[in-house]
Write a protein that binds this DNA or RNA. Sequence first.
DNA 1: ACCTGAACACCGTTCAAGT
DNA 2: ACCTGAACACCGTTCAAGT
Lengths: 179, 179
Amino acid sequence: VPKNRRPRDRDDKHDEILAAALELFTSRGYDTTSMAQVAAATGVTTTTIYWYFTDKDALLLAVLDHVLENVLSELPSQLERPLDEQLLWALARLRSHRRLVVTVHARTARVPAIATWHDGFHELMNAVLADGLRRQGVLGEDIPALTTAGVFVIEGLLTHETSESHARSVLRVLTDKVS
Amino acid sequence: VPKNRRPRDRDDKHDEILAAALELFTSRGYDTTSMAQVAAATGVTTTTIYWYFTDKDALLLAVLDHVLENVLSELPSQLERPLDEQLLWALARLRSHRRLVVTVHARTARVPAIATWHDGFHELMNAVLADGLRRQGVLGEDIPALTTAGVFVIEGLLTHETSESHARSVLRVLTDKVS
DNA sequence: ACCTGAACACCGTTCAAGT
DNA sequence: ACCTGAACACCGTTCAAGT
């Protein structure tokens, strides 16, 4: 057996399970998709998943990290743009993952590892948004409060169905704070 | 058997189950408490609950209605107060029900009846907040966007742990929109 | 090391049987 | 009408057994 053969196979299967979970968790939702469904979508037995992921929450965590990684890779191209365009981009980019957002909130109270991930995600959003506000010329003392408000508004727009135009005007209400 | 005896017993047991569910759903969370636990807390068999509530979601809905009813009964005394005090009151009043808020969001995607309840709750919050903004002298055209932002910020403050002082300054950022 | 089928403990819900 | 114990279908997870 060539030394590279096995590890690559393992990585492949790991990624296949991850891809199936990502697709199912995003489209159908975390607690509506069973481990059996993830296994069937990958073409393995349910128990096989447990060889690659310690439990269902670990699988969710891997999905979250994967999504975050993708978003992070696109972030640099957005950092120069005006704040309101940044926000609309974030909104559009994350909309397909709305179920994931709700799931993270639901499971944060239950599993510490998800709570930690959730904290990290908020820190990231806070940092990016605070920077955007600073670039807009917002007073330093207003930034923490406006940042928190902004993140909550984004989460709200993400998880509640709203028209594109209304979302736009809700976000404008925040960015207009410059004056 | 006196004609009033039976119906009253029935109402009593209905309310006892409801009270147990309210306590458990609020403190431990909806999907962490089993029907068996609600039954045990009431002193009945699991299957008995199904005589009074069609299923677990119907029980949740009854809990939600009960909480809403209580909040509504206290609402009139708050309607005259300044907007920022109203918001702080709502925040304090609903904080103990944060798990319920997260649960509603999680189950809205799954069960239509919860989605309808959720819509109604948002309509109520929107109406109260819009009225508060109007009384503050906010321009009519800004009200819809500010209302949506305000409700999302309240939900965010409710579901994410924040210090009292930070919450206060986050809310002020919204109410200061008058100027 | 990797994968499986069978088993376990738990869940929400149903139902035939009692009173 | 009201309540129950037994049963059902499903779930996440474990484990002894295979390769």
